[in-house]
Amino acid sequence: MQVSGSGDANGGKARFDDVYDQPDPRAYFRRLAPLEYEIPQRAQAAFRRAAAERDGGTVLDLCCSYGINAALLNHDLTLAELYARYTGPEVADLTGAELAERDKAFYAARRRPDAAPVLGLDVAAHAVRYAREVGLLDDAFAENLEGDEPPSPRLRAAMAEVGLITLTGGGSYLTRRTFAALLPWSRRPLRVSAFVLRTVDYAPIAACLAEYGLRTVVDPSVTYPQRLFTDEREQRFAIETVRALGAEPTGRETEGRFHTVLYESVPASG
């Protein structure tokens, strides 16, 4: 279906700011493992398909954190293997530098022959630095485009080569401001593949993409679990917000998990 409507609601969702910008990803995986955070794995096949269909260029992963989407896109790995790696006893006592050295070899040994160049954008400077250091990202940008600051000259130059933008989870934190800041610098045919929580109205972003010639489609009957709720308060927020946006939470959010839908945007002339 085509995307329409307006508005936004995410104020009742728990935040995990303390683990999003650590020097390495161990705390992130330890915190999210009990919540069965799974959307990067759900997105893996869709992102690989979108990367294969892009008309050249690089991939830009928004809200990339430690490069998890890049890890799953470009390596013979599952999210379960990453959980096991970063929560296991064999890495618990390593320094950050020791873990980074091991991760370089770990990812290099699992690199797929069809790996796509990936850029990462996130406000978490430590996280993107780590992802860049271990080879998950070809380049990384610790910038916040939700404010008044424009993209840096380096990011503007990088956008000229982007053929695919990916997003998982960050729809709760990004608005059309980020896309409006990036898309004027696009020079290639562009696709956007975004897994967005059902508590978020994506229509303002879809409208922004339309201004740059992209048509957004979604099948709301197909949903993808993101994670367990942290508590009853968060579940109530999700159920109420999903209903307020015109969807039905029964069988999805009522069963204890956030759910996402996949929005895909492609050139309207394509």
Score class of each variant (00 low, 15 high):
A105P: 00
Y202D: 02
T254W: 04
A194Y: 08
V200L: 08
E90S: 15
G5V: 03
M159Y: 09
E248Q: 14
E232F: 04
D103Y: 08
E36I: 00
L35F: 12
A181H: 13
R177E: 13
Y130M: 04
F229Y: 05
P220Y: 08
M159Q: 07
A97R: 11
G213A: 10
R48I: 11
L164S: 04
G135M: 01
T78P: 07
A116G: 01
P150E: 01
D17T: 13
G169F: 10
E161A: 15
V91R: 02
P89S: 10
L137A: 05
E98T: 12
I39S: 15
D114M: 13
L119W: 13
D17G: 13
L214E: 12
T58F: 06
R15V: 15
E211W: 02
L77M: 05
L197F: 05
A9V: 00
V200I: 15
A52E: 09
Y83A: 06
L190T: 05
D76S: 12
D18W: 09
V123E: 04
F47G: 04
L183H: 05
D231C: 00
R257H: 11
L60Q: 01
G67R: 10
R257K: 14
I205M: 15
T87M: 04
R112M: 05
L94H: 09
S269Q: 15
R129A: 15
D219G: 08
L145G: 13
L62H: 02
Y20F: 15
T178D: 02
L137G: 04
R156F: 01
D231L: 01
V3N: 03
G88L: 02
